[in-house]
Amino acid sequence: MSVVISGVSVLIPGADSAKALAAGPEPGAGPVEPAALVGRKGLRYKDRATQLGYCLTSAALADAGLLGEDGTVSGGDVGVVVSSNYGNLDTVVRALDTLREGTVSATSPMDLPNASSNVIASSAAIRYGLRGPNLMVCNGATSGLDAVNWATTMITAGRVDRVLVVGVEPDNDVVRRLLGGRHAVDGGAAVVLEDAGAARARGVRVRAVLGRYVRAAGVGTVLERLAASGAPAPAWWHLPDTAPEVIGADLLPGVERTALPEHSGRASGALGVLQCATAVGLFDEYGEGPVFAVCGTDADDASAGLVLLEPPAPEAL
């Protein structure tokens, strides 16, 4: 049994598709404008991460051919897994400031759902009719790849045939203070994961096939375990979020390295999903894999690695 990617969306400043992301986001681009993408209706009272999540959800479901004419999903449950570390930090501190500078009566009841970190995942489910398992992963640097793996795990376990995975991080003053002045990516990516048989049954185009996932202490250990699992040698290596020189030249020598550029800011929980979208863009452009995606450096609590394989020829699937 295998799990495939059957839809993808990308929205960060300077890149609005997997192809543009793989080519490298343009510097100096303006912010993503949710109202221009999904309309103003329903955006009021939603934090920026949730708004960005709506845009990514809508585009990925449409790309996978799952969005009906009424703008929601019908026919079979779709699960949701969202990865974000900074999602609702702005709501939390704003409510806190209001409380400390006045009393509880000054707070807005509309903030209550946004104070719960899973609001991105549940809001996407409500807006687009996604009734499968609904999971919010806030797991630090590896969060995006972890989210992809939990979606794969739930599909493999037979809980659901299709899962939307979103990785998104908003940029704001709270996040910048937490990052010591650096900005966050203020966007993200989404992929639709699907049981290969279910994808074949509805005739959707496969964009990538998921291989082994590993989480362990240190980038070197993760690469060793991926190699030991029998994964084919990679054509590309998508690096974790750090200065490129930090990753030793002795690791995967000769393999073409790719990374999100410094000007895109900290991708954090969005990175792993952006890496999957990059892999789709690379397969679309060059038709050649595999891509090794790695999140989390030796300075983090752990690293995660995921193998993404190019889609097989249609008759082989």
């Binding site: 899973n118 919010m136 797991n139 989480r215 362990a216 609590d301």
Partner: peptide, 16 residues
Amino acid sequence: LRERFNADVTHTFSNA
């Protein structure tokens, strides 16, 4: 959890 138990396969889910 890494510091305390040397745990490296840890997953935090924020699911209300």
